[in-house]
Design a protein around this nucleic acid. Structure first.
Lengths: 341, 341
DNA sequence: GTATGTCACGAAAACGTAATAGTGTTGAAA
DNA sequence: TTTCAACACTATTACGTTTTCGTGACATAC
């Protein structure tokens, strides 16, 4: 009971050989005679010897660990991305260490500094709201300058040069709004977030472009920006009652489901009176009543791709200066459900 | 550009003192003269010296990292628990490394072995379905025998002696069913999972006990066990049509929402014709139509507690044999919503 | 019989840190 | 003048690996 893991040194002592001999035996070095080699291997197997990861990390100057920094984890999209990252990480012998920024700049910085001191080989991250708001990215520049690769996904910034994985938010929003127009909807509102969240802005752009391309006048009053989900019902109620709209494009499914519930209270039927379409395909859309048409945002693929890019960069001899950073765009598509039927 | 992190050795060389002097200066040792100390500190600050975590881990024989093994992460309850763990871990200077078992025994074993080789100080885990089915826990016994503390949560087993955090599944199920009875429901069905998932069994026990305590005959035909969520609609439909039940207790919210949707199709109104109550308070229950009454299963608290117990055990001098393992029970309560009104 | 080579293994360095145990210089007490 | 302590620093070890470089013993070649 309570037998600490056995080390090379202990094996060496026990068998009365040198540490080098043990190490070489276990790696099947031809330098070691067969008899000794087999003896060592048998002994090691019996005591279930496994090399110590920390010692290996120190020696090899790499940890085989990927650091993930995301705003929150109780969030369908982000946890899906983690799942995607973990899949390919695991396939390639990497572990993932996860830190949450809680959408706080300070926590993001602290966590990154903590992990950057040798704990991981590279970062995969999505920016916190506060970081995007402040526009301060020095902590990211710093780790990159130290030679630690960073892959950003979803909430990215142009101010940092690194690998990125995103969806074409603008095009996807365009497609969504176009689909509403194709179904004969004329007066389409947009329910979005405040502007400093990069994706929010892009989606707004797509919305506007779709309207204009279809010669529908763009009316600023039909855009409402929500900062706090809990107090948005009044704003949404007003939108629905006053503006006589026949469709809403929401930038996330929480907004969408709130809109539907509010509409029902007012006496509007979805989709007859009001078509609703949402960004971010999550679990709510699938189980809401009516089910909600969404722009799928394939988190798994995004995570897969981000992990692949990071590992690729980690494992190719990093000849300084071949930093041809890529931005991968994950394709989206519309999942048609009841809310726009 | 591309300046690797500076080390004690480099500072020592640069300032022409010994490594020890640098180390001691940075830790404000009185052994070092003020002039030298300040000089070193200034230099270190300028070059943003931070001790290398890996080297510290190797030296101190502890990593300040907690390993988390869970079946899946795209899952409201589990991600909430992670959130709870991360909170207190962070407060105490720990990071979390997360591995997913995908409900596979082999992946669980592999991940644990990987992490157990020095990468972490202790485990927080919830058993995979397959592990519970097989009843094979040797991998857990092994890490415990190596002196690595393990805290299990939610899906636990009696066969392993270690700290545990659970909810009183039986009592909570009892309370839920009792509340249905109090509302005048007589014929209450149970929709649950297959038996080898520990929590499923306990919830069934609570259901039965509540019925019997209220002199309601227990009818085995009113219990249906679902193995695969995707093919359950037929089974559920049959239950609703044939058995003339007036309430359902579902062991998770996915079952609950499926039941409601099926009921609607058949022409039953929830809650008038059918009351529905679910275990596991997640995001679906809150946004479903009607909203679903649930037994809250406070994941944050569970994570908090699990992390506290683990850190407590890690940081108290581990005098061998003071293994008075505890099982903490997190209280639950009913969140009344529309589906049982 | 000397030179060369192979075999089988060991010693030591390196990764970066912290702590224990020295070491040389200075000044003061005896 | 000797002795001892204080001071300010250095050397060394240890954590657990892997790897490079040595080295002694023996055999073969010339």
């Amino acid at each position: 009971m309570m037998k600490r893991k056995i080390t090379l040194k202990q094996i060496a002592k026990e068998l009365d050989v040198s540490i080098s001999t043990v190490s070489k035996s276990l790696r099947n070095s031809p330098e070691i005679g067969e008899e000794t080699r087999l003896k060592v291997q048998a002994f090691a197997k019996f005591y279930n010897y496994k090399p110590n990861n920390i010692a290996l990390s120190l020696k090899n100057r790499k940890t085989k660990v990927i650091g993930i920094i995301i705003p929150e984890i109780v969030h369908h999209f982000f946890s899906t991305v983690i799942n995607g990252i973990e899949q390919v990480a695991n396939e390639n012998g990497y572990s993932v260490i996860i830190c949450l920024s809680d959408d706080s700049f300070d926590k993001e910085v602290l966590n990154m500094e903590m992990l950057a001191n040798g704990s991981i080989d590279g970062f995969i991250m999505s920016l916190s709201k506060e970081t995007q708001f402040k526009g301060d990215f020095h902590h990211i520049t710093e780790v990159i300058n130290q030679g630690m690769p960073v892959v950003m996904f979803d909430r990215v910034t142009n101010e940092i040069l690194c690998d990125k994985v995103i969806i074409d938010d603008k095009a996807a929003a365009y497609e969504a709004v176009q689909s509403l127009i194709d179904k004969g909807r004329k007066k389409i509102a947009l329910v979005t977030t405040v502007d400093y969240v990069s994706v929010g802005k892009l989606r707004t752009d797509g919305y506007i472009k779709a309207l204009l391309d279809n010669d529908i006048p763009f009316n600023e009053n039909l855009i409402i920006k929500i900062e706090d989900i809990d107090t948005c019902e009044i704003t949404i109620g007003k939108l629905l009652e006053d503006k006589a709209i026949d469709a809403v494009f929401a930038v996330n499914e929480l907004f969408a489901v709130t809109i539907i519930k509010t509409a029902n209270k007012i006496g509007l039927t979805v989709p007859k009176d009001l078509a609703v379409i949402a960004f971010t395909d999550g679990i709510i859309s699938k189980y809401s009543t009516p089910t909600i048409t969404t722009v799928s945002q394939n988190g798994i693929k995004m995570g897969n791709k981000a992990a692949k890019m990071l590992i690729e960069r980690l494992e190719t001899a990093e000849e300084e200066g071949n930093e041809n950073y890529k931005t991968e765009v994950i394709e989206t598509h519309l999942i048609e459900r009841e809310s726009t039927h």
